[in-house]
Design a protein around this nucleic acid. Sequence first.
DNA 1: GATCGCTCTTGTGTATACAGAAACCGCAAT
DNA 2: ATTGCGGTTTCTGTATACACAAGAGCGATC
Lengths: 229, 229
Amino acid sequence: MYTETAMVGLGAPLRASERAYRQLRGEILNGLLAPGAALLEVEQAERIGVSRTPLREAVARLIADGLVVGRRGRGFEVTDISVDSISELYELRQALEVQAIRLAATRRDPAPFLELRDAFVTAPELLDQGDIGVHRYYVLIDELEDAVDAAVENPFLVGALRAVRTHLARIRRLARRNPLRLRAAAAEHLLIIDAIIAGDPSLAAHATHIHLHQSLLSVLAAIEEDSEQ
Amino acid sequence: MYTETAMVGLGAPLRASERAYRQLRGEILNGLLAPGAALLEVEQAERIGVSRTPLREAVARLIADGLVVGRRGRGFEVTDISVDSISELYELRQALEVQAIRLAATRRDPAPFLELRDAFVTAPELLDQGDIGVHRYYVLIDELEDAVDAAVENPFLVGALRAVRTHLARIRRLARRNPLRLRAAAAEHLLIIDAIIAGDPSLAAHATHIHLHQSLLSVLAAIEEDSEQ
DNA sequence: GATCGCTCTTGTGTATACAGAAACCGCAAT
DNA sequence: ATTGCGGTTTCTGTATACACAAGAGCGATC
């Protein structure tokens, strides 16, 4: 989630198309650009402060990411998120994560996971520390994902996973997570990490399967709850 | 493989960017543009007969497809295919196909697969009829893939599968398949189809797993053989 | 009053012109 | 002979101008 709107000045002077891409992507992920929002080339180009050419390139990338769809004659539109699409995304996610975890457990380089294990053991305490603790917990999950990606050593698989995570970021915004679920999730993550360290691909895979099953249930429940209020 | 270089005039007058995309994509898949080939914007734009703007859009899509990588200062380059990358692609493919087949078997609409079953039963005879038969066999596989895609009803998963198949098309060109393998593959496909018809997701998944395992072995063996000659 | 058609507006698709950056070549100096 | 430096060239990145297509609004006619 490093593509926040606030991309403070870093070394390289970004290309205009890259700036436009990051800004639009960030705004879609943040919900600032709501699903279904109709966007026009000229309008957006002016707003972001780039010309139409780089903006079109940015939009093309967003379409490839599945965050945006082109419309017949009239500009483009932010894709919307239905409950059905969440379940569908999780069907893909399950396939990818299970495979990734299985491979990570097979590759057997426990070192980075031993560190993460320590962190996840203390995760429940973290979750007692309010918003800042929750945020640090999410950072921990990011680190776990990075460690898995590195262990998998498979650009194709990691690429597909990154695409899924992009969509997940939007979904997380929809459903506020409840603290009990986070605590349970931490325990599930710990089991997965232990399975990787133990070099037990089958256990790791099944633990991941279950984790994602619970995660989907929790997300769907949270959305249903929100929509009732 | 419907993106041959010969895209004869069909109804809609294609946009220039679309034409450029299809032509380049076709040429990369055909091997006409070899892996590692360095391409320049102006050069390609002239060759295809479009301006630089739509060509850049086409290249952007190819980069998103993973068929092309941009180079620092000097144009772009067709991605190359290493033996390692083939194994990696199959790691992703396995995850996706197993999940897709599992879902297809779960959804339980046997109708389209009953037809395919008949076709695959007679596949061995087809393979005795030389190149034309082999071609018809490949068409059959395409139809099976389409039937699975339709049964899965999951845009995310199907999208990921399509991306994998794009890369597979390039790999198939590298390794001429031997007839014995094709015959064995037909039997494996038949088992998968039967499992879907029977509504047995677990059997379908395991059959797919094995099929892909054998397929990878065959491809790697064929490449090794070719490189020895 | 409703419907058909025309025009005017707006927005995309494409080409081209211009600016900045990076690589290549040659020259010279060590 | 090799290496460092500068000029030149080429290529990308961006902006803008133009053409064409689709829609909306308005008027005229039935």
